[in-house]
Design a protein around this nucleic acid. Structure first.
Lengths: 264, 264
DNA sequence: TCTAAATATGCATAAAACAGCGGTTCCCCC
DNA sequence: GGGGGAACCGCTGTTTTATGCATATTTAGA
């Protein structure tokens, strides 16, 4: 409408951009405020937020939305990552559990996804687990493992992991059945990526140490690339996710012989 | 006294994030404080905490919640040791602190005494710390160290330590200024002893890696011998305790050129 | 042991979300 | 120029959620 000064750009996309900018600035938005600001109904705002939430650009809540720091360079508080997309990660963890058998040797890296997996392993028995996460030993059900090894190295306070070489545990080399890896992004051009540079090399070692590699990734990771490259896609065997990737990425994964399991 | 007024916390999710941030900062929260801070009823806070607890993001307690990092694994017999002779161990830790200077490299083994020491290091700066305890990184004041290394190895659930060779950290050998060691017993006949067999060899390696060894031991340890022998008394330099040992042991220690510091 | 505080449970209320409907606008293509 | 369709928007009634309050119960601490 020509009578409106600022809001004449009635395009929804414009409103979405403005909305994200505001969110970045304030950390949270309420439907009520936005409705007044843009002079549209609450329903419209609600629909906008739903769309943005389904794109993983914000976290929808009762009454509005809150920001989720998806900066590529990850100084985002770990607890925040633990508290976003909780239901997706839980479902992924439960699906991944079924891929593991009693008595296997697992390597787990230290991310929020692998933590959820660790807490879901209660049904299994006699696992041997190797990890660089200091949180996993605390939450891992003690009934599921017979041996648990922690990889030594420099401690990263934010991620609560150690970073170092993994070639040896107890002074001798190891081979594992399965590496279960949480990553920062999965994209066609960059492959697997993560936010912490030093961690990338460590994760690659984990992949090479294991006969089979399972990557845990919610669908928001698809198409995203963090700055530290871990490995090309063909180095992994399986991706467990909550929603199938877009056809283009799916095709590339198929060509690379990477299986995809979508958690129900 | 709440220096940080939370202004617009209309959204529950925002409150949850803020709450987790506070928790990470303070380690523990009370329902009462949070209720005042966010200006909502205690019931609401209680429900929030329940949700976050069910997501595995914190540990619920009577009256509030604690961070998972600070959680000393529920019902380990280790907790009993943490809660016995508390005042003695605190005094010992404070006295031992004064023996450490800024910028030193410390090796700490994983016992209740060294944990108390770790929590008292807040005044120091630029330490490099090497430990096999998974609890120490969680309680160590982040202001005191510039680097923190965790020794890898097999995880002992009860003591929350790793057991393995310490010769390498990040693939290269190390030398430390000071090893601070908590032991199970100090006796004339058996020297230094501990309860976990595998740990004994590891502690001896720590002692040999450091130029100086300080043993933390409350007076109940004197004359007691656990079954795993660590080293003879002459291998250490100092004992920090809360009460002087009996003359006979004191004489042997003097002959072995071991200094004794009695915490006031 | 005893007492005060904290929790659990049920309920009431207001706000927000959801689902469906109809109107409008814009664009594409005939 | 003019359908036809798709997207956008606001409205209405119903359902869900968040919150606070009252009561009974449990817990922690003196």
């Amino acid at each position: 409408m020509p009578d409106d000064p600022i809001r004449d750009s009635a395009l929804p996309a414009r409103r979405h951009l403005e909305l994200l900018r505001l969110l970045q600035e304030r950390g949270q938005l309420t439907v009520h405020d936005l409705s007044a600001l843009f002079e549209v109904s609450g329903d419209t705002i609600r629909r906008d937020l739903d769309i943005l939430a389904s794109d993983g650009l914000l976290k929808r809540t009762h009454g509005g939305a809150v920001a989720l720091d998806n900066l590529v360079h990850g100084d985002t508080p770990f607890m925040q990552r633990m508290s976003t997309h909780v239901s997706e990660k839980k479902r992924i963890a439960q699906a991944a559990c079924k891929l593991v058998g009693d008595g296997e040797t697992l390597i787990l890296n230290g991310g929020s996804s692998t933590r959820f997996l660790a807490s879901e392993l209660g049904e299994l028995r006699n696992l041997t687990i190797v990890t660089n996460s200091l949180a996993i030993p605390a939450i891992l059900p003690s009934s599921c493992y017979s041996d648990l090894y922690l990889l030594g190295g420099q401690y990263n306070r934010y991620a609560q992991v150690t970073i170092g070489p993994i070639g040896f545990v107890s002074a001798s080399s190891i081979t594992a059945d399965t590496a279960v890896i949480g990553v920062g992004g999965i994209s066609i051009r960059e492959g697997l990526t993560t936010t912490v540079l030093e961690e990338a090399a460590m994760i690659l070692s984990m992949i090479k140490t294991a006969r089979r590699t399972i990557v845990l990734a919610d669908h928001f990771k698809f198409g995203r690339g963090s700055f530290a490259h871990i490995a090309p896609l063909h180095q992994i065997d399986l991706i467990v996710t909550d929603q199938a990737p877009l056809p283009e990425l799916a095709q590339v994964l198929a060509d690379a012989e990477v299986g995809i399991i979508v958690a129900p």
